[in-house]
Design a protein around this nucleic acid. Structure first.
Lengths: 288, 288
DNA sequence: CGGATACTTGACAGGACTCAATACAAGTGG
DNA sequence: CCACTTGTATTGAGTCCTGTCAAGTATCCG
């Protein structure tokens, strides 16, 4: 029984590849990272990756760009598997993800994990910690990452000075919200196969947004246990679903790479919708 | 099999109590509602229920209050069961819920329904339609309701003129987002009993926020089918879970009323967290 | 009172979980 | 270079939670 009071999972394999950082709440993960200051004029590090994302939709003013750059002045690198902020940690900072992929998850008190969201460059992390003194979620690096921490007060200033950027932050919050409702519907009302399939589609699309070279084939970068924790399944069952998708020629696998073979069929089978598409931003206020 | 292509549910009982408004896509639901203009000086209708909600956390300025009132100038009443906006409708307006309870849901193409969220007075509805030309979700009245429609452009002006209100809209969006992640974790990683229990707790808490007289006992106002569509279960299994909760003396039922008998135990059993509590709003900009 | 909707209960089936064993890959240390 | 360890993937067998189907009861309302 997946008991509420008991332990849903036990043993060492439970916590996946990041055992020590997930389990050991005393581990000083702050020491897994380096904080540096972006050198002015260093083109490869300067600029703002959030600005890059926004530029896909609107033409930013110079003032807006420099305001966004100010949010990303500090840089911190994270090793694969290290935890940026743990659930119930004091939540004083927000982050902009500059490079790498991350995830947020919660651990329930029976030890099971639900992965809530995967993050890609240009994502703002920890917006929810604006509201709560303690972080509701754990944020963790799936690959080597660079993040830019900034203060709540900086965001507050940005909202006052730049209503259009405030609106875009609202917009990205809503995209996330709608993407979450899609996943809610998937967990509540679709089969295991459809859940796994739609996760693959989402990962492909989000990777492609970062790296235009990604087409149908991409390196997953997730263990089957992680896929399971994102889709509400067990690793064993994820394995079987991947096999089925492969047998039905919807996807192909080799090594760590997944290829989406029949995208149309996969989308039909999963109800997947790309929520980053077709935004209507005509109502935005003027940029300053 | 809960087939992707097939029909998960068939028959007349499928669509719940609101059959005609859910099924008949040609029904002119616009005619189910009356739009009126709030009379100036009519204290019972004037004011802003969103302002009331915000006042619990911050002291609004006069300018802020009147700006919020402007969003709620128009009133529209909805009959129980009528649809305010259907998924894929053109999404031109937003709404403030003034009175009654509503829900948003999506229908998957196998006919199954996932209820995403329940709404109570003071909630802003349809924020997601800011972004998309077509509404991603259906919004439907669970009881007789009053909503106030307003334009995207009005929201845009509000963001420019009132940074603190913009921040609060962002905050409420984030509360919803976190509440959704809680439900995601519930669907992905908790038992049917825990899901039903946490839904009861959430409904109680949200009802209590509107009506202080609500304590442990409240009228549910949902069918078991609706509870199922919110928790990812079937109506039959919801029934069994309610019975079990009752047998374990966590809740009691009579007529349409539910009483939370052992709140502490129920909270332990469900991991429920009230996300409307303990907000940290010290970072907010000054009100204008 | 009749019809519709909602609730309840039982029997059964099946999808997903659990447990367990094996295979495979990568890294470590001697 | 090879044992050894650790983490991940794969596969099979058995169990159980939840869905399906069906029938009966309760409730509401015109």
């Amino acid at each position: 029984m997946r008991s509420i009071a008991g332990f849903y999972r036990t043993g060492t394999a439970t916590q996946g590849g990041f055992g020590e950082t997930l389990i050991d709440f005393n581990a000083g993960n702050a020491f897994n990272c380096l904080t540096t200051r972006t050198k002015r004029g260093d083109a490869s590090v300067a600029g703002s990756c959030f600005a890059d994302v926004l530029s896909e939709h609107i033409a930013l003013t110079e003032n807006e760009c420099s305001a966004l750059e100010r949010l990303e002045e500090r840089n911190r690198t994270l090793r694969r598997g290290s935890v940026l902020r743990r659930s119930n940690d004091a939540a004083d900072e927000l982050f902009m993800l500059r490079a790498g992929t991350m995830m947020t998850y919660v651990l329930l008190d029976d030890g099971s994990r639900q992965i809530l969201r995967f993050h890609f460059p240009g994502d703002m992390l920890g917006l929810s910690t604006l509201l709560y003194e303690e972080a509701p979620e754990t944020i963790c690096a799936l690959t080597e990452c660079t993040v830019c921490p900034f203060e709540k007060s900086s965001l507050s200033e940005l909202i006052v000075e730049h209503p259009r950027l405030a609106s875009m932050i609202l917009v990205y919050g809503q995209i996330e919200r709608v993407a979450l409702t899609d996943r809610l519907a998937a967990l509540g009302r679709t089969s295991a196969k459809a859940r796994v399939g739609s996760l693959l589609l989402e990962l492909r699309n989000r990777l492609r947004a970062t790296d235009k070279r990604v087409s149908d084939s991409f390196t997953l970068g997730l263990t089957q246990e992680e896929i399971g924790d994102a889709t509400g399944l067990t690793a064993v069952h994820v394995n079987r679903m991947l096999r089925q998708l492969e047998e039905e020629r919807l996807i192909a696998r080799e090594g760590g790479r997944v290829t989406i073979v029949d995208e149309a069929a996969l989308m039909r089978a999963t109800n997947y919708v790309d929520r980053y598409c077709d935004l209507d931003l005509g109502w935005l206020p003027q940029g300053r």
